[in-house]
């Protein structure tokens, strides 16, 4: 028997009924079941239908408005998100390079600066508070630069302190009469009391007495000055923390009992701190008209105070 094509590939369907007619697979919108129509309406509400299907369903809606109203229900089935937030979201953030630099470098530097600041300033503030409460030997001469500018000084107050210190090299006797009785009630113009010269002692020569403004030099009478003892003894009960600390420190450094100019040492320390930290601290000496050191003033951008100096501390 000869082998033909039909034996190799037997047909399972009759040749004339292999494919249905093109229109047999389609259903009109009116012929759909309810479930099928729901799916079609859902697609219509999503604008997901192709053009030919869209035209067909629009025609159905035109013929039956109830179906259109029914299909429009699907357009309302949209979920609106609630305002739900996750609390752990912030932990997912990563530091930027700038933030990392700030955290690793700047923050430790600031912390160190804060510690240094606390060491340098908070301690004196505490001591100052106790010092203020302590009795002051001569409050009438304790003055700050601000006080001098606000209230004019009276000659009486200034010259009632006749103790002038002189250079040991040229001890002299100067006869100066007190002008208290003459110009007692006359206020003198405000003068800058701050003296930035470092020596504690001033020179008062007998040949050239200091002439005060508004005072006739002929009325000045010489007074006898006694040389101030060379030793600088700071009593243990000294309440002035500044002078006490400076004197103690200087004694420790020099290991001798000779008098030490504590003001110079303190000013040098502050100058060194200024140069290292770039601060603007300033230590000044307030000298009366008679040349006595009456107070030491400390000024900085954050703290300003003046501490009276006892005679024994000069």
């Amino acid at each position: 028997m000869a082998i033909n094509d039909d034996m190799d590939y037997p047909r399972l369907t009759p040749p004339d009924d292999r494919y249905p007619a093109p229109g047999n697979l389609f259903r009109s919108a009116g012929d759909l079941t309810d479930e099928q129509f729901d799916l079609l309406a859902a697609a219509w509400s999503e604008n997901a239908l192709p053009d030919d299907s869209l035209a067909e369903i629009e025609a159905l809606f035109a013929s039956d408005p109830r179906k259109k109203a029914y299909a429009e229900i699907f357009g309302q089935l949209r979920l609106t998100p609630y305002d739900e937030k996750w609390n752990g979201l912030h932990s997912l953030m990563r530091p930027t390079p700038t933030t990392r630099i700030i955290r690793r470098v700047l923050m430790p530097v600031l912390a160190a600066a804060a510690v240094i600041f606390a060491i340098l300033f908070l301690r004196p503030v505490t001591d100052k508070q106790t010092s203020i409460k302590a009795p002051v030997s001569s409050p009438e001469v304790a003055m700050a630069p601000e006080t001098v500018k606000a209230a004019p000084a009276v000659v009486k107050e200034v010259i009632q302190k006749p103790e002038l210190s002189v250079n040991k090299a040229s001890p002299a006797t100067v006869k100066i009469t007190s002008v208290t009785a003459v110009k007692e009630e006359l206020p003198v113009p405000v003068r800058e009391q701050t003296v930035k010269t470092t020596p504690v002692a001033v020179t008062a020569r007998a040949e050239a007495p200091i002439i005060k403004a508004g005072i006739d030099s002929r009325e000045l009478l010489a007074v006898e000055l006694n040389e101030i003892p060379a030793s600088l003894n700071i009593p243990e009960e000294e309440e002035n923390w500044l002078m006490k600390g400076i004197a103690g420190l200087s004694k420790t450094i020099k290991r001798e009992k000779t008098p030490v100019d504590g003001y110079v040492i303190a000013k040098s320390c502050i100058k060194g701190i200024n140069s290292v930290f770039g601060s603007d601290m300033e230590l000044e000496k307030i000298v009366s008209n008679a040349g006595d050191t009456v107070a030491v003033s400390f000024n900085s951008s954050l703290l300003s105070f003046s501490a009276p100096v006892r005679k024994s501390s000069q």
Binding site: K85, L89, M93
Partner: peptide, 30 residues
Amino acid sequence: NNAVREFGDHLYRFIYRSIRDKHRAGDIVQ
């Protein structure tokens, strides 16, 4: 960081509504 700020809550919302478990949703987002 912008992606965290902008999409973090959206992502969490999507996952939480999908699995209905806040802790698991947070873990998945993380």
